[in-house]
Design a protein around this nucleic acid. Structure first.
Lengths: 232, 232
DNA sequence: ACCTGAACACCGTTCAAGT
DNA sequence: ACCTGAACACCGTTCAAGT
């Protein structure tokens, strides 16, 4: 997968935007490029969701023939991989080089991660099914470094990382999919009240209606970090 | 979705296995039924994964014409919904009616949940994208009741439930997808070593090779429960 | 090097028809 | 009530060909 990707990149590496300097705006006649394909794929995914990404539609948006894409990309899978990783780039915090507040840093990374995925609701459920791209690996590396520096023993590091990963992924996938089912919301609501006799506790606490997702996310994260924090 | 399902069920409610008593084994000539369709769909999903479930293949396995399915089921989506919920039924613990050990009960429910999903690796990543079926709601209800009985305040209940849900879903989806990518394992391995210079901390802790998933799951869960436990 | 249209294989589903 | 084959619309991708 990485091999394919770097292959495709090498194909296009030598011609980079010679045309843009001549002042013409990027019309549908502008040349195809991996960047444009990926950016347009993200647009299309944002607009139409995961099932809305069809090679023909993508080509339409790019103003090219459907088959032109296949010169830049091996297959649809690769489009997914590239779109996903492009959305998960991490631009670090204000970066006070060597912060004391490791816990704040961790929370920032994870909340930013969640926010990035929620900005593109298709990304969360896609992530676990794909190979880990460079942007994701960078985040994991950064996280590991911070925790390690904060005093988490090497033997506990993997548990810590995976616990946090699991929590963030679960929270974000769930949240994103609740978002996506706008159309079924009426039906879901009706079913819930109809079923409430069987699920009294859930009904009483309004589990499925509670929408302080951000707050709940943060609280659970705090609990996890309490547990993961190095004993001192 | 619930409406469709109960509609389909009412259609077949009156004829239940009259033929089986006559001693003939269930051959491909045995009549179609929602139960058989769902059971066979689960088999097919287990064998071939999410992309392996095609209506024509499902019909083949059932020894029927492809279109016969559509009398029992509205569409492929419903097959997914039914297969998913059928796999998530919870048969409670040995059931010492009113246990003192709420924490043990919670751990049991969640580990069983995880195990059920891992037995059918396609189920985990499907779950968040589907409406919550009756078996899932039952688990959530049971969980709520236990936590509530254990002293978790109503105001904290939703945070508790969702934190646990998020953690279990994230852990299971991640685990299941690592399982599925057997074919890419070689490539992943190669890439990791090739990239290890960029991700030294990850590499050192062997993050992507650590496979004590069960242990890591349990530890993170303990941390969460420490935080969620009612102060006493 | 880059793009294209025609064509193929495949898939979910509609329909009109069978028993 | 239950099942079916033919047919349609749609989609990813191959191929042979253009410039």
């Amino acid at each position: 997968m990485a091999a394919k990707r770097s292959g495709a990149q090498s194909k296009r590496s030598q011609r980079i935007d010679v045309s843009l300097e001549s002042g013409q705006e990027p019309r549908s006649e502008s040349p195809l490029s991996l960047e444009r394909i990926v950016a347009t794929a993200v647009e299309l995914l944002d607009a139409e969701g995961i099932d809305g990404l069809k090679m023909r539609r993508l080509a339409d948006r790019l103003g090219s023939g459907a088959m032109s894409l296949y010169w830049h990309v091996d297959n649809k899978e690769e489009v997914f991989d590239l779109a996903l990783d492009s959305v998960l780039e991490y631009r670090g915090p204000p970066q006070t080089v060597e912060s004391q507040d490791w816990r704040g840093e961790v929370v920032h990374i994870l909340e930013d991660w969640r926010a990035s995925m929620l900005r593109h609701p298709w990304s969360a459920s896609l992530l676990p099914r794909r190979a880990l791209g460079p942007n994701i690996l960078s985040r994991l590396e950064l996280l590991s470094r911070i925790l390690s520096r904060a005093g988490v023993a090497d033997a506990d590091l993997n548990v810590a990382i995976w616990s946090l990963w699991n929590y963030v992924m679960g929270a974000t996938i769930t949240r994103a999919s609740f978002d996506l089912s706008d159309d079924d919301r009426v039906a879901a609501q009706q079913r819930l009240t109809r079923l409430s006799e069987h699920y009294p506790t859930i009904e009483r606490s309004r589990l499925l209606l509670d929408n302080d997702w951000g707050g709940a996310f943060r609280k659970g994260l705090d609990f996890l970090l309490d547990g993961l924090a190095p004993r001192q």
